[in-house]
Design a protein around this nucleic acid. Structure first.
Lengths: 196, 196
DNA sequence: CGCGACGTTGATTTGCCTCAACGATTGTGG
DNA sequence: CCACAATCGTTGAGGCAAATCAACGTCGCG
């Protein structure tokens, strides 16, 4: 099992001993997910929290018009779960799908609860992680209000070049909350500017 | 000092003994804030985390065109801080201003760090709080993509009637990311529908 | 009282969407 | 391995939701 990326990730956030790292990782299992396969479907109960090793996932939800709104993409070193569904074991708002053949480490609810009691520092780890996620989501929300579609697209491709190269323009559009046709028009304007 | 609301709030989230509750609350100080006063200004370092007892606050940031984007409003039982600025003691993206004469309980960084070490359960409390906030922010982001201005306005006034009655339409507009003129037009359409 | 902030309304503009058609690329079953 | 289907990105014409700009009466407050 490929636990090195997970260990490295933890060490960037909190101070764990080698033994603690091992305990932490021992509760995870590795899973291979093929392109287009779903880890979770809207309405089902989310039984896992996942740490991506390889590949790419999208987390999205369907609105009443049947449109797919992407909450975020997850590549290596990102976590995927429907937090609300996972922590309260109730139907998920989100779907999670692989956009490439992927590898992921999973932990289930029982084992995560065990981790919380066995290693109190795990509380701190997830508090810090969640805080960081919250801050970036707050900034994204504000950007959605203050920036144009053009600016939001530019921000995305410069902030997440690695993600951008893995996904289609349609997916970027679903993330930015604009149409894929408009993304195409934005890209053309960008090309022109770069030539000028 | 009015600590009962804070104690009640904590008990809805985690299981604290009476002694733990007292320890927790002992690190807070009460402050009176007059209408229009700022608890924090964008660019300054946020020295506190606050629990609102009475009144109303807005958390907002200025964009490059000088427009005020409201992240959220806080009335009694809500928390206010610029998490990133507070935890990392760096300049704030947000400003926090009282919209009414208000009462608030504050804790500074030193004392919050003490709390984390003295009462390990505090980690859990703030992890859970942050998770809940994150979930609601995720939903709000998705709604901003899938719902019209009309629908977002309706959602706001039905979800937060208590907040709505305390603030002006201009503030609601800044929260929803639309103009105050358009809010006015939306309200008229609503009135017509209710008469029909 | 007078001033500033507020809500309202209308005319006009615009950023982005919708719908439709097209070729290019990718994926797939026979 | 190829034929065909599906999905993709592109482009254009037209439309609409919401923004902009401007003017107005009202209200609370200093």
């Amino acid at each position: 099992m490929e636990i090195t990326p997970l260990k490295n990730y933890i060490q960037t956030n909190v101070d764990f001993s080698e033994a603690e790292l091992d305990t932490f990782c021992s509760y995870f299992t590795q899973k291979t997910v093929s392109k287009k396969d779903f880890l979770l479907k809207q309405g089902n109960i989310c039984r896992f929290e996942g740490f991506v090793i390889k590949g790419c996932f999208r987390l999205f939800s369907l609105d009443k018009e049947g449109r797919e709104n992407v909450l975020y993409f997850a590549i290596k070193n990102w976590w995927v779960t429907d937090i609300d569904s996972f922590t309260n074991q109730k139907p998920a708002h989100l779907s999670i799908q692989a956009l490439e053949d992927s590898e992921i480490l999973l932990i289930n609810k029982t084992n995560k609860d065990r981790l919380y009691t066995e290693l109190p520092k795990v509380e701190q780890l997830f508090r810090i992680m969640t805080q960081k996620t919250l801050v970036s989501l707050q900034r994204r929300l504000i950007r959605n209000h203050s920036d144009s579609a053009q600016e939001r697209y530019d921000h995305f491709v410069t902030t997440y070049p690695e993600i951008n190269q893995k996904i289609t323009d349609r997916q970027v559009a679903a993330y930015l909350g604009i149409t894929h046709e408009f993304v195409s028009k934005i890209r053309n304007k960008r090309m022109q500017k770069k030539i000028e």
